[in-house]
């Protein structure tokens, strides 16, 4: 996905590089970087060219809307919502348990998001009951129930441990 192989190795390396570009790179490092950047840009160009030369199938404007929409939804909706949740949690839940609640929320959010079309009942068609055939609302509840049961066990473990250590 997403131009992994040769394509975004360069970009990924860039994303992870601790220092901004240019600061004290060796000649070899610089050459490697140039090669990776060139490969990345070539892959990008190949992809964009492909998207534009088959407009009947790819509908470039619609694809672009989804491309930009995804990043906008993430940065403008998802991140602030997560921050708000984190802030609320920091006020509502005491520290030894907060980490567990946060962890369980991450798991719950990811599971709910990846199965969103299913439990929302989007997709499929009336004449094909073998697509999305399960009671997904119930199943999501079962999975999240298990996740939170695990979280509750962790919290109980913590409470017991804290009591054993004694107040202090």
């Amino acid at each position: 996905m997403s131009g992994d192989g040769d394509g975004d190795t360069g970009a990924r390396a860039d994303a992870d590089a601790p220092a901004p570009a240019g600061a004290g790179l060796s000649v070899g490092g610089f050459a490697l970087r140039v090669v990776l950047v060139a490969a990345g840009l070539a892959a990008l160009g190949y992809g964009v060219d492909g998207l534009l030369t088959m407009p009947r199938a790819t509908r470039p404007s619609n694809a672009a809307a989804w491309l930009i929409g995804g990043i906008v939804v993430h940065d403008v909706l998802l991140v602030p919502a997560t921050m708000l949740a984190g802030f609320t949690l920091s006020r509502l839940v005491r520290a030894p348990y907060r980490a567990v609640v946060q962890g369980a929320l991450i798991v719950s959010g990811a599971v709910a998001l990846m199965s969103l079309p299913l439990w929302r009942g989007y997709g499929g068609s009336v004449d094909n009951p073998s697509v999305n055939p399960l009671p997904y609302g119930r199943n999501l509840a079962i999975v999240l129930g298990a996740v939170w049961a695990g979280a509750a066990l962790l919290m109980i473990g913590r409470a017991v441990r804290a009591r054993r250590t004694g107040p202090g």
Partner: peptide
Amino acid sequence: TLVPLIAGSIFQLATGIANIAQWYRFHFF
């Protein structure tokens, strides 16, 4: 260059999830 990388990643996951659920909200093939 990170913009197309991130946009592409989100795009692939989101449309892939919609596609396996046969939820064709997008108009492209």
